[in-house]
């Protein structure tokens, strides 16, 4: 008769090997977010461009990478591309796959953020002859970013868990190392419960970060916010 062994569960929770996998998961997620944000911003700008070629490419990119499963993308990048002479290795394939995938989602989130900034903001900046670059960096981007945070947070949450798919191409993150530990003693419940706790923990930490971001970028809209003393010269 099998039962759930709490002691084994706690052991797995503090298992050094599994902790190593947590580090890899964090690394994958961070790279996915940072890379996805940069690439996603480029794709979003192309998607909003009046240039039909750029626009068309961005539309295709988003359609393709949001339309196919991440699992297939990872497998194709890792095992299919070498057939064409492109060898990225295990980590490289996982990073490229996650970034390409995340960028397709973030591009749409970034675009929606820009579209949600009221038109009057642009018009006011135009009327004041503010240069185009300044309008983008100082007027539009900060406001778009504030609107982006909630859906962006959602996407990062998904990404944190989606990194587990990299286990199929043998990246030794939480899921893969859990599989490996499970093979030793077949304490399936204990191992995967520990793995689940790690994902919960990572997601909870991200929740806190997101709250801070929302607070930081929303403070100017708070009627009772403490004002910064005006400098006088």
């Amino acid at each position: 008769m099998r039962y759930f062994d709490p002691a084994a569960f706690v052991d797995y929770l503090f298992n050094y090997f599994l902790l190593g996998g947590v580090r890899v998961t964090i690394g994958l997620a961070l790279a996915g977010v940072v890379g996805g944000l940069i690439l996603g911003m480029i794709i979003a700008l192309m998607r909003m461009s009046p240039n039909l070629l750029l626009y068309g490419f961005a539309r295709f990119y988003i359609w393709f990478f949001r339309g196919t499963p991440l699992l297939i993308q990872l497998v194709v990048i890792y095992t299919g591309l070498p057939q064409l002479g492109i060898k990225l290795g295990v980590t490289g394939s996982a990073l490229v796959g996650l970034i390409l995938h995340e960028a397709s989602y973030l591009a749409e989130i970034i675009r929606s953020g820009f579209m949600s900034v009221p038109q009057g903001q642009r018009e006011a900046a135009w009327a004041l002859s503010v240069p185009r670059r300044t309008i983008f960096w100082r007027v539009m981007l900060p406001q778009a970013f504030r609107l982006m945070i909630p859906p962006f947070g959602n996407s990062v949450n998904s990404l944190l868990k989606a990194t587990s798919l990299a286990s199929v191409i043998s990246v030794e993150e939480i899921m893969r190392r859990s599989d490996m530990l499970m093979q030793e003693n077949f304490q399936i419940l204990e191992v995967y419960a520990a793995a689940a706790v790690y994902y919960l923990l990572l997601v909870s930490i991200w929740d806190l970060v997101q709250q801070r971001l929302e607070h930081h970028f929303g403070r100017s809209l708070d009627r009772n916010a403490k004002s910064t003393p005006a400098k006088r010269r």
């Binding site: 018009e123 100082r138 900060p142 406001q143 504030r146 100017s220 910064t228």
Partner: peptide
């Protein structure tokens, strides 16, 4: 149409 994220 003031910029809401900037001070006066």
């Amino acid at each position: 149409n003031l910029f809401p994220h900037m001070t006066i």
